[in-house]
Amino acid sequence: MLDSDVFHSFRRNPVVVVSAVVTAVFVLAALLAPWITPYHPYDLASLDLNDAFTPPAWTEDGSRRFLLGTDDQGRDVLSTIVFGARVSLLVGFCAVLFAMTVGITLGLVSGYVGGAVESVIMRVADVQLTFPGILIALLIDGLARTALPRDLHSEIALYVVIFAIGIANWPQFARTVRGSTLVEKSKEYVQAARVIGLHPGLIMLRHVLPNVMGPVLVIATLSLGFAILAEATLSFLGVGVPPTRPSLGTLIRVGNDFLFSGEWWMTIFPGAALIVLVLAVNLLGDWLRDALNPKLR
């Protein structure tokens, strides 16, 4: 995949390098959160309410123990951000993976098989695309809330969010994959495979799929930004992940209550982290789109 031309265009582009580094730092920090954060923010034993509302270290009342200050429970804001990013990224990645799986499968099938199957799948996708993604996610989340018993719901809330955001996202993948599949299908190597007598499923899997993955990769990266934002929005609205495992969005919502009482750091820092993360991911996606598009090269 990463042939040398792509790598070359990567190295020549400082903005992209920075974006990649930022994304990598976030992912690594999220993966290693329990080992690298100064405090474990959700370990009740280590919390001291006397530390609550400590401002960032460089301000007058700041403490050197808490670089970005603490929240209303005395939790270290830096640590909560790293743990929050962990949840945000987990939801983002899983949602995109889910959307990708559904989208690629339906896109391949509708592009390759054509006919009524294609019409049905694509009309469903079209209809869904007329609703904003966030609305779909809200709808699914609301349905899950009413349909599931309360305690069960908070247990699987994370999966509901992943499912909701993933479902909101599949049509993009399906449409792109269908388009590329139509192009690849008309190429002679696919016809050669048909003449050989290969099963259509095998042709899709072995011949078409590897050749449509380029655009999918681009959309996956761009969707990751969307998914993280969608999760943050849901959590900000209070319908996303359970407060026991706060994401960046949850942190922003909680901090928001204290914004006007002067404890600005509780919402500004998670907000800044979210912006930087999504911006980096989107810049990376934009670059990937240009780099893999032979027309722009």
């Binding site: 002679e188 007598g197 050749n211």
Partner: peptide, 17 residues
Amino acid sequence: RKRFQMIFQDPYASLNP
């Protein structure tokens, strides 16, 4: 079908890259 094969026109499109 095994006894039939086909050779295509475009050598750049007929092999999976």
